[in-house]
Amino acid sequence: MSTTTEQRAPGRARPWMDLRVLGPIIALIVLIVVGALMNPNFLSYANITNVLARSAFIGIIAVGMTFVITAGGLDLSVGSMAAFIAGLMIMVMNAALPGLGGGLAVILLGIVAALVAGLAAGWINGFLITTMRIEAFIVTLGTMGIYRSLVTWLADGGTLSLDFGLRTALQPLYYGGLFGVSWPIITFAVVAIIGEIVMRRTAFGRYCAAIGSNDTVARYSSVNVGRIRLLTYVGLGLLVGVATIMYVPRLGSASAATGVLWELEAIAAVIIGGTMLKGGFGRVWGSVVGVLILGLIGNILNLTDAVSPYLNGAIQGVIIVLAVILQREGKAGT
């Protein structure tokens, strides 16, 4: 009975010679080499900064999504949630402008509004999934539609725009930064590092993996399964709020078109990174690599004329599938 093939426990695999670990990194390196060969500007400071900054939204969300998926859940609502929070943040700031003036107070108010809205939206998802025991897929499919409609309604079918004066005050949140590194990149890095530590080095991360692996076993091991699950959704909601805080200053507007398909990009990034879609094993750094892979594909396709733009989606699809195939352990069938 002990005589089946020796398989190692996930997360403790040998660091080298293991495609599960190297797969996404190899894909990333190949993309960087291809990009550099195709266009000399690819490795320029400006281009690298652009790609990192624009990947930050999905990246921050993907870190939260990693925990949700590791714990055996799923959240399809994050894209609409981002649009809704962006709309709400803009409306709150516009409304507070006459009273508070165009200074720091309004900006802080906007930030708090986005974070609170994110927490609340995440909590609602988590509550419906854990306490009401509805399938995560169904709950978040429902809230996806709800938030998308709400933002359309708030914007009257059009676009919610930040007051012009505020826009200038808020812009540094996206375009500004420290030592030539913009805030979205810094935030993304900080969120990713914290996420990696939480996943790898805290009881919460271990519980997520245990629940995703077998929630009955977790329950019999005195793990408060409902609470941990709820927390993964609340955490994701909070991170959607964080992402939105940096999204709003970029264009100063939100509409029904904001955040479309972000959920799928985030989920794809998480899976490319080696987290198991059915739960039980997750790694945050993998999701970060996944996000960068997705960001670079779009960037490279824009920087070259090699491929018809009609085929962009196909190229992305092929690379996603390849990245996942690379991670599979040797044999197929058995």
Binding site: A9, P10, A203, A210, S213, N214, T216, V217
Partner: peptide
């Protein structure tokens, strides 16, 4: 079905129930 996480390692299984102590 209820006692052990078969796809995880010995260590993670051993300490799961008393993880607070670690």
């Amino acid at each position: 079905g209820r006692g052990l996480l078969l796809n995880m390692g010995l260590r993670d299984n051993l300490t799961l129930q008393s993880l607070r102590d670690f």
